[in-house]
């Protein structure tokens, strides 16, 4: 009698442990790309707000392209570009880099809005107090302008957290990829999807409520 090896297997407690691990991967990817993307985005937003014409036609156009092309296409495109130029890079770092650039394109828009919301009189006032340009930016424009757009920034960050699910197309085992593999193996779609969805919901929902709360508080 020859033994048959089943491709499918039952759903064991060990399988359930895969999902928190994958959720951690999702969290790491999101945290890395959101933090670097935000720093870059503030820098880009600052450049865009300072150099109206040159900034708009160069940096503005490039960032706009990142916002107008689906993230999944960007991921496949740039992952293959890394291969084309002979740069061996694993899916994790490729995903983080592309997500960070994507985040920076979204944050740049938000940051520019915030920086431009601080009016010229405010800047003139701070210059009259003897602050130089950098001091004005550092102590007046950023604290006021960036705080005003904080709720929108939270919205962008939440979007990226959810979009990090797309890194699965590169084959990195983040939450949704692991969920999909588990479904194929254990044939328990409802349970696995419910757990995976609960993880995303638990990450996203409190933050979105907090942002809505802040927005309401600051409006009144």
């Amino acid at each position: 009698m020859n033994q048959s090896i089943s491709f499918f297997s039952g759903f064991g407690p060990k399988d359930l442990w895969f999902l928190p691990q994958a959720a951690w991967q999702t969290l790491v990817i999101s945290a890395l790309s959101i933090s670097t993307g935000t720093l870059l985005g503030i820098l880009f937003g600052w450049i865009l707000s300072e150099s109206k014409i040159i900034g708009a036609v160069t940096l503005g156009l490039v960032l706009d392209a990142f916002r107008s092309v689906p993230l999944i296409i960007q991921l496949v495109l740039f992952y293959n570009l890394f291969n084309v130029i002979g740069l061996a890079i694993n899916p994790f770092w490729a995903g983080v880099i592309i997500l960070a650039v994507y985040t920076s394109a979204l944050v740049a828009n938000v940051a520019r809005g915030g920086i431009e919301a601080v009016g010229a009189p405010m800047r003139r006032a701070s210059r009259s107090l003897g602050m130089n340009y950098l001091q004005t930016i550092r102590h007046i424009v950023w604290p006021i302008g960036l705080r005003a757009v904080f709720p929108s920034w939270v919205g962008v960050a939440l979007g990226v957290l959810k979009d990090s699910a797309l890194v699965s197309v590169l084959g990195h085992p983040e939450l949704l990829k692991v969920a999909r593999d588990l479904i194929t193996r254990t044939q328990q779609p409802l349970l696995v999807l419910a757990v995976a969805g609960a993880f995303y919901f638990a990450l996203s929902y409190p933050i979105s409520r907090y942002a809505a709360h802040l927005e309401r508080k600051w409006q009144s």
Binding site: K162, D163, A165, L166, S168, L176, L193, G197, F201, S204
Partner: peptide, 13 residues
């Protein structure tokens, strides 16, 4: 809340 707090890909799945 489900539509806004889970990835679109999850919803497709």
């Amino acid at each position: 809340e489900l539509a806004r707090n889970t990835p679109a890909l999850f919803q497709l799945f």
